[in-house]
Design a protein around this nucleic acid. Structure first.
Length: 321
DNA sequence: TATCTCCTGCCT
DNA sequence: AGGCAGGAGATA
């Protein structure tokens, strides 16, 4: 579900709650959410309990917590989070929330609508991280495609800051093969364009290839292609340099606009750390709009399928070349 | 480069 | 009952 803008909203929302805090306890309600952890759930709990959070970093859809020991020395390991299709990080309690609540009129707890498991707010809570100020971070994930695990830090190949927020070039091993994203000033966009133009695959498949450019998912791929008036099935090798550049620039611009309004939420499967939805769904031009008129030319938006994923596009103003 | 798989839940 | 859903790793 969440693509780069949604993950970045989570990173920014989470940071003030966890920066400098110590993880005091971990509750594992769903071991499958830790399946990427080498050594299993016990190893995960062992690795993060007692660690201090130095900083949150993100590349594409990967978000990780840089960890220190209690003296403030680097542990050489990061707590990885990937939200998959339905993951959320939710913060409850703690100092930062108490401060925010001080200026808020106390609301009576909203009564769950109806009865039964569907109204249980804890239904999909998989992992709980307790912090030393009493706060807790819930990893909520309906479909369990996402997860938490630890990954050792390595030097990034190009020696540049590993992410836009990094103060060094250390990167978790599991992110080394992930391309820099469109919001990273260190991304070599011309190099990405050159690779895309050398491939026969449809442009949308290239956009979704996280090793080339990361952070783009099904929504922002379709929106970037709409912005660049380019069809999803245009082969990479058919694109001019300028068209390829416009596709990437288009995706970047859409992501910036989404970030400004808190990301894209269709339902409560995507919310920020405090449970609020993003507002970008209203601004989508093509994604999910089959049967509706194209906002640019009025032609009816069509739905097609590529690699088992829906593609929404305007058959008139999006062209193959 | 497809296709299958991991999951749960909602909508026709 | 069947299709669909913001992702991506494994496999042939």
């Amino acid at each position: 579900m969440p693509e780069l803008p949604e993950v970045e909203v989570v990173r920014r929302g989470l940071a003030p709650h966890v920066d400098g805090r110590v993880i005091t306890r971990v509750d594992v309600h769903e071991p499958r959410s830790l399946r990427r952890q080498i050594g299993g759930p016990e190893a995960f709990v062992q690795a993060v309990t007692g660690a201090r959070v130095a900083r949150l970093e993100r590349r594409g859809k990967f978000l990780w917590w840089r960890l220190q020991d209690e003296r403030g020395d680097e542990l050489g390991e990061a707590l990885m989070t990937h939200l998959g299709m339905s993951g959320q990080m939710r913060v409850r309690g703690g100092a930062a929330e108490a401060e925010a609540d001080a200026g808020t009129v106390a609301l009576s707890a909203p009564a769950p609508r109806g009865e039964g498991p569907a109204s249980d707010p804890h239904r999909h809570r998989r992992i709980v991280l307790h912090l030393d100020d009493g706060a807790q971070v819930d990893f909520v994930d309906q479909r369990i495609f996402g997860g938490l695990w630890t990954s050792a830090l390595e030097q990034d190949a190009d020696g540049l800051p590993a992410t836009p927020d990094s103060i060094d070039d250390l990167l978790p091993a599991d992110v080394v093969g992930i391309g820099r994203d469109l919001l990273d000033p260190a991304q070599d966009r011309e190099a990405v364009i050159a690779v895309m133009r050398a491939r026969r695959a449809p442009i949308k498949a290239l956009l979704l290839d996280q090793s080339l450019v990361s952070g783009i998912g099904n929504i922002y791929a379709d929106e970037g292609l709409w912005a660049a008036r380019t069809r999803f099935d245009a082969p990479g090798e058919s694109l001019t340099r300028g068209r390829a550049r416009r596709v990437l620039d288009g995706a970047e611009a859409v992501m910036h606009r989404a970030l400004d309004v808190g990301g894209t939420s269709f339902d409560d499967l995507y919310v920020n750390v405090d449970g609020r939805s993003g507002y970008f769904a209203r601004s989508l031009a093509a994604y999910g709009r089959a049967g509706e008129p194209c906002p640019r030319c009025g032609t009816i938006i069509r739905r097609s399928v590529l690699q088992q994923r829906s593609c929404f596009y305007c058959p008139n103003c999006q062209r193959k070349a």
